[in-house]
Nucleic acid binder design. Structure first.
Lengths: 210, 210
DNA sequence: TTAATTTTTGACCATTTGGAAAAATATTAA
DNA sequence: TTAATATTTTTCCAAATGGTCAAAAATTAA
C-alpha cells in the first residue's frame, strides 16, 4: 500500500506493468483526448483496477505526461535522420517515406500528438519552441543550401516541411475520412501503398530541378 | 419556463441568442473537444447562465450537432465550386486558395472538424460515406478527365484532394506548431501569405504538364 | 515455515457536470 | 392597467469521475 515513488521502474515486472498501462492509456487518450478519457477506461483497457493504475502513476496527468514525452522522442527521429551528405531528392523522399510509415505504424501516437496540438500544446509548447524549432531550423538550412546549389527546386523550406508533415499525418489522423471517401474496399496496406506513391510523385515533381 | 420546442428560431431575438450560443460553443468545443467542454464554459463564454443555454438547446449534444451540421455545409462549398468548365490549373489553384482562406478565416471550425474526425466522426460518418464521398467521386472524375485530356499532369485524383485538404487545414489545426517553428515574429497575414505562395507553387509544379 | 514487503482491490469520498424544477423577472397582448 | 406568455436565474439532484485508504492477496526474505 506504500506508493511507488521511484521514477524509473525497478524490476522487470514493474517495467512491464507500466508499459501495459501506457499502452492502454495511449489507446484511450488517442481516441478520446485527455479530458475525454477516464482512468476507469484506461484500467479497463489494461485489464487491471483503477487504484492499481494509481499505484504506478500518481495521476491521470502523469500518465499523459510520460506518454507525450515518449512520443516526442519518436516523433522527431525521422527529421533528425535527414542528412546533408546524401542526395537531396533521395533524402527528402526517404523522409516522406519514413513519416508515412510512422503514420501507418503508429496512428495512435499521431492522433495523440494531433490532439495535444489542437488543445494548444499545453504540455509540449516549450519543446516546440525549443528543441523542435532548433531541429527544423537546422534542417531548413540544409534544404536551403541544396536549393542554392541548384540540386533542388526552390520552395520555402519551412513550408515544405509543413507540407510533408501535413500530408503524411493526414493518413493517420483523418483515417476515417480517407476510408469513407475511398470506400471500404481498400485494405490498409493498399491504401498506404497508394499514398506512398502519390506523395513521392507529388513532392519529387515539385522539387526536382528541371 | 416552458421549453422551446421549435427547431427554427422564430423571432430575431431568438435567432440572435442561438447564434450567440453557437459562437460561444464553437469557441469552447474547438478548444477542448466535445467531452472536454462543459455547458458552464459555454455559458460563461456566451455571458449567460447555464439553464438559459438549456432553454434554447435541450442538451450539450444538440448544440454540438447543430454546430457540426452548419460546419459541413460551409466545409464542402469550396470543392463544390470546382467546375469542369474552367482551366484545370486555375481551378485547382483557386480551390487551394479558397481552402487556405477558410483555414485562415475559420480556424475554429477547422479544429472542430478535426476533433470530430479524430474521435472517429461519430456524428458525421453517414455524411462522409454519403454526401462527401459522392462529391469527391464527382470531382475526382473531372480531375481524371483533365488528366486524360493532357491538361493536367497525372496523379491519383483522390490522393491529390487529400493532399490539398491536409496542407491547407494544417495551417489552422497546427497553428501552435507552425507559430512555434516559424518563431513569434510572423504576423498571421504574413504567415498565410507565404503559405499561399508555397502551396500554389508546390501544386502547380506537380500538376502542370511539361 | 513465518515475517516482512510489495501488489492489488473493494469501498469510499469530494468535486464536477449534465440537466430538471420552479420561482422570479421581463415582455407582450388585452 | 392586468393577464398571459416568454425568458432568465437560483436551487437542486443524480451520475460520473479523480483520487484516497485500508484491508486483502501475493510475493519475497528470513
Amino acid at each position: 500500500m506504500k506508493k511507488l515513488n521511484t521514477r524509473i521502474p525497478n524490476t522487470r515486472i514493474q517495467r512491464q506493468k507500466r508499459l501495459t498501462i501506457l499502452d492502454a492509456a495511449l489507446e484511450v487518450f488517442s481516441k478520446n483526448g485527455f479530458r475525454g478519457s477516464t482512468i476507469d477506461q484506461i484500467a479497463n483497457q489494461a485489464g487491471i483496477s483503477k487504484p492499481n493504475i494509481l499505484y504506478y502513476y500518481s495521476s491521470k496527468q502523469e500518465i499523459h505526461k510520460e506518454l507525450i514525452e515518449r512520443l516526442m522522442e519518436k516523433w522527431l527521429t525521422p527529421l533528425e535522420a535527414l542528412s546533408e551528405g546524401g542526395d537531396p531528392i533521395s533524402e527528402i523522399r526517404l523522409y516522406i517515406k519514413r513519416k508515412l510509415e510512422m503514420a501507418r505504424d503508429f496512428p495512435r501516437q499521431s492522433r495523440l500528438f494531433n490532439n495535444e496540438i489542437l488543445q494548444g500544446a499545453p504540455h509540449i509548447i516549450d519543446l516546440l519552441d525549443g528543441e523542435l524549432k532548433n531541429l527544423v531550423d537546422k534542417k531548413a538550412k540544409i534544404i536551403s543550401k541544396w536549393m542554392k546549389e541548384g540540386r533542388l527546386a526552390k520552395v520555402d523550406p519551412y513550408h515544405l516541411i509543413f507540407s510533408i508533415w501535413a500530408t503524411t499525418q493526414h493518413y493517420a489522423d483523418f483515417d476515417v475520412q480517407v476510408c469513407a471517401v475511398l470506400g471500404k474496399e481498400k485494405a490498409i496496406n493498399k491504401r498506404f501503398e497508394r499514398a506512398q506513391k502519390h506523395l513521392d510523385l507529388l513532392f519529387v515533381r515539385a522539387l526536382r530541378v528541371k
